[in-house]
């Protein structure tokens, strides 16, 4: 199932260069007092005159070995540019997922256990607040509060957990709402099921019951969501990396689009799409590990 998707993705990525407005050769030469000969020379080098199929096959052949060409602006191989940025984004996204899961599970659990009380509603409202703030605004407010006013955490750069917390929390808060609601409804469902009553009859404490069975029930939808949301999570880094001056794929993507750096756009889009396919493959595999009963469940339907 992943193979046709990957092929399709490669076709889309290849065609970017032919769909975007403007002439890439002129874009490369913009700002320079280029002569027509120079333009012709560059055109010949990029071989934009070949038939599209030939260009696609060449593109695919190179992409397979990780060669996306060179960035128009930095003159470096695109794969190196991405290699520089990817670890930072993975680190950010990973931490953000952890934060989102922690906050989401805590709020969801709290809301479910104290179901229909003001605690329930407050928890859900907090979760909703996190998702309803545009992330650049949330990020700037976090900087002003935790960095400028309280002086607890640095606002920019990489390296160490302290520089990771604020940007990861910005993304994490945005995604915790989804998880909180899932956990809440999963737990509620379990609480109303019979086997809990059975367990209760056996004399287990309420919290023990909740944690053991309810969280087990919430595990699968939460895993699914993390897979489905990964694309959005990566996109969230586009904004957050700019606000917190972190390096990463998001900033690379914005620069590439604004500069019309075609090889770079292609590389970034392809790598994010592959990342998505890969993650969902992993999520698929993890289902059987989490619950053998639903080995055949279709992710797409979840």
């Amino acid at each position: 199932m992943s193979v046709p998707v990957v092929v399709g993705v490669s076709v889309v990525v290849f065609s970017i260069i032919h769909v975007l407005p403007g002439d890439p050769v002129l874009a490369i030469l913009s700002g320079a007092n280029a002569t027509p000969e120079q333009e012709r020379e560059l055109r010949a080098q990029l071989r934009l005159d070949d038939p599209l199929v030939v260009q696609y096959v060449r593109f695919l052949g190179r992409a397979v070995v990780g060669d996306f060409g060179r960035s128009i602006f930095t003159r470096r191989p695109v794969i190196e540019e991405i290699g520089d940025q990817l670890p930072s984004t993975l680190e950010l996204a990973g931490t953000a997922i952890v934060i989102a899961v922690c906050i989401g599970v805590a709020l969801g659990l709290l809301a479910a256990v104290r179901h229909d009380t003001w605690i329930d509603r407050a928890a859900m409202l907090v979760a909703l607040g996190g998702v309803s703030m545009p992330s650049f605004w949330l990020g700037l407010l976090l900087i002003l509060i935790f960095s400028l006013q309280l002086g607890w955490l640095p606002a920019t750069g990489q390296g160490g957990l302290s520089r990771l917390i604020l940007p990861a929390a910005t993304i994490g808060l945005n995604y915790s709402a989804v998880i909180a609601r899932l956990v809440r409804s999963s737990v509620l469902e379990v609480l109303q099921n019979n086997y809990i009553s059975t367990a209760r009859a056996k004399g287990l404490s309420e919290w023990g019951v909740t944690l053991k069975h309810a969280l087990g029930n919430a595990l699968i939808p939460v895993t699914t969501i993390i897979g489905v949301q990964l694309g959005n999570l990566l996109a969230g880094t586009i904004i957050v990396e700019t606000v917190f001056s972190r390096r990463g794929m998001g900033r690379l993507a914005v620069t590439a689009v604004l500069d019309k750096d075609y090889p770079l756009i292609q590389g970034v889009v392809l790598v994010s799409a592959l990342g998505y396919v890969l993650t969902n493959l992993l999520v698929d595999v993890s289902y059987s590990a989490l619950d053998p009963r639903i080995r055949h469940r279709d992710v797409a339907e979840a």
């Binding site: 900087i143 960095s147 400028l148 640095p154 920019t156 750069g157 700019t242 606000v243 001056s245």
Partner: peptide, 17 residues
């Protein structure tokens, strides 16, 4: 260091970062 957001630049100057 590249710090594109103006508010962030003011913040890091004030905190001494």
């Amino acid at each position: 260091r590249f710090v594109p957001e103006a508010t962030t630049r003011t913040a890091v100057l004030q905190t001494g970062e």
